[in-house]
């Protein structure tokens, strides 16, 4: 295991932020800490980096107990949401910082920094200052800077959080490819489930300072441990007392076995998919269908239909209140 976190508790004042958190991160994996803001995921990342001290519990990095180790002795790379670029240093000197601290020979530093700048496509920007770079470029520089010291684990705190949607998507794909090239154990924090599912090979869902579920993206999406995880990972709707994904619902104009009667209240066309809003047993629900399917049924508001979860689809029975 690259990182083993055991029974970590952490409070800020009287507010508990992490409660008995234990996670394992496999060597060479790309793990997402996913959860709503205030869920403790950034704090957990900072505990792993040594930027926060846990009240109780231990952190092991590559088998070594690092709980009381200062951040500079943990050999972790950390990338901050707002880049934390050294403003008074050029891009080159930013990336070289960790190597200069380690007093590596000048030639070696030059070679390594240029390699890294090539890796993050910033080789033309070596002599610029951070203020002359775009947000995406700054974050790539921060990544190169963290990688320069050959860390055992790379930690990214909402790395794309401050970027606009377009750049965000680009950098996501790019991070996945970079990880496939470099293979350093990576943990990143995000509140965006799409980002976690697209990039990570393991997702740790954190809420209210507790681990809700750990698994591959497919596992947490298809087999959520509880209604919270199911709601957080993707769209859900409620039919017949169960929580179901709207794309996992069959809709038919004829009554079917196990189906529930519903009234169509609105049909919304969103490009190739169609959102059918329903009234089921006096409650709002919705179903996502393809445009072709909707056209075939010729649904319109006021129609009475029969709905049921697709056989084999995962649904969660909600406790009746």
């Amino acid at each position: 295991m690259a990182i083993e976190v055991r029974d970590v508790n952490k409070s800020f004042g009287t507010t508990p932020v992490l409660r008995d958190v234990s996670i394992d991160v496999e060597s060479g994996s790309l793990t997402a800490l996913l959860g709503p803001s205030g869920g403790g995921k950034s704090t957990l990342l900072r505990v792993i980096a040594g930027l926060e001290q846990p009240d109780t519990g231990t952190v092991r990095i590559s088998g070594v107990d690092a709980t009381r180790l200062a951040p500079q002795r943990r050999n972790v790379g950390f990338v901050f949401q707002h880049y934390a670029a050294f403003k008074h240093l050029t891009v080159f000197r930013n990336v070289a910082f960790g190597l200069e601290i380690r007093k590596r020979p000048k030639d070696e530093i030059r070679k390594r920094v240029m390699e890294l700048l090539e890796l993050v496509h910033l080789e033309q920007m070596a002599d610029r200052y951070p203020s002359q770079l775009s947000g995406g470029q700054r974050q790539r520089m921060a990544l190169a800077r963290a990688l320069a010291v050959e860390p055992e684990v790379l930690l990214l705190d909402e790395p794309f959080g401050a970027l606009d949607a377009q750049v965000r998507k680009e950098l996501r794909t790019w991070l996945r490819r970079l990880h496939d090239e470099v293979h350093v154990t990576t943990v990143f924090v995000t509140h965006d489930q799409e980002e976690a599912i697209e990039v990570a090979d393991t997702i740790v869902v954190l809420a209210d300072g507790e681990v809700e579920q750990v698994g591959s993206p497919a596992e947490v999406y298809d087999n959520p441990a509880n209604p919270f995880v199911m709601r957080f990972l993707g769209p859900v709707t409620e039919i017949g007392g169960s929580l179901v994904r709207p794309h996992d619902i069959e809709i038919s104009t004829e009554p079917v076995e196990g189906g529930t009667a519903a009234t169509v209240s609105r049909v919304v066309r969103l490009g190739f998919e169609v959102r059918v809003e329903l009234q089921v047993e006096g409650r709002d629900a919705w179903v996502q269908v393809t445009r072709g399917f909707a056209d075939q049924l010729a649904l319109k508001s006021g129609d009475v239909v029969s709905v049921r979860p697709t056989p084999g689809a995962r649904s969660l029975v909600l406790a009746t209140v």
């Binding site: 040594g50 930027l51 500079q72 901050f80 934390a84 670029a85 910082f97 960790g98 380690r102 963290a146």
Partner: peptide
């Protein structure tokens, strides 16, 4: 203190 923390994680005392 972001920059100082970044420096720490890069090995600076």
């Amino acid at each position: 203190d972001d920059q100082e923390q970044a420096a720490h994680t890069l090995g600076a005392s």
